[in-house]
C-alpha cells in the first residue's frame, strides 16, 4: 500500500494503483486517475459508466464486471471499449476508485 496525492487529496492505493478505500474517491481524484491512464478529460459517457460502477459496487460490495456494466449502465459493450480502449474491465473500476473486478466477463 502506498499513500499518494491525487488532485490535492491523499489517497491510499495498492500496488496496481487501485484505491484501497473507495470512500477516499472524489470526481477530482477520478480526473487525476483518468489523466494517468490517458483518458482525460472524462466525457459525459465516461461519467455515466463511472456513476453506474460506484452505485452498483455500493449495493453489491464489489466492482461490476463488464457484461453487467454494458447491460445496466446504458453504455454498450462496443462503446465501453471506445471509452476505455486499454481495458474497460480494469480501467472503469480503477478510475471509479473501486477494487479490480473479480468477474471475467
Amino acid at each position: 500500500m502506498t499513500v499518494r496525492t491525487l488532485a490535492g487529496h491523499e489517497v491510499e492505493v495498492n500496488d496496481e494503483g487501485f484505491l484501497t478505500d473507495s470512500s477516499e474517491w472524489s470526481p477530482d481524484v477520478a480526473e487525476a486517475l483518468a489523466a494517468e491512464e490517458g483518458l482525460a478529460p472524462l466525457s459525459e459517457r465516461h461519467w455515466t459508466v463511472l456513476s453506474y460502477c460506484r452505485e452498483d459496487a455500493a449495493e453489491k460490495g464489489e466492482a461490476p464486471g463488464l457484461r453487467r456494466i454494458s447491460k445496466n449502465s446504458g453504455v454498450g459493450m462496443k462503446e465501453l471499449y471506445k471509452l476505455f480502449p486499454d481495458g474497460p474491465g480494469k480501467l472503469a473500476a480503477k478510475v471509479a476508485g473501486l477494487p479490480k473486478p473479480k468477474a471475467c466477463i
Binding site: D86, G87, G89, K90, C104
Partner: peptide, 12 residues
C-alpha cells in the same frame, strides 16, 4: 472464450 474475454477486458 472466457480467457479471450478477460484479456480484452484488461487491454490485452
Amino acid at each position: 472464450l472466457v480467457l479471450a474475454n478477460a484479456a480484452r477486458m484488461t487491454g490485452i
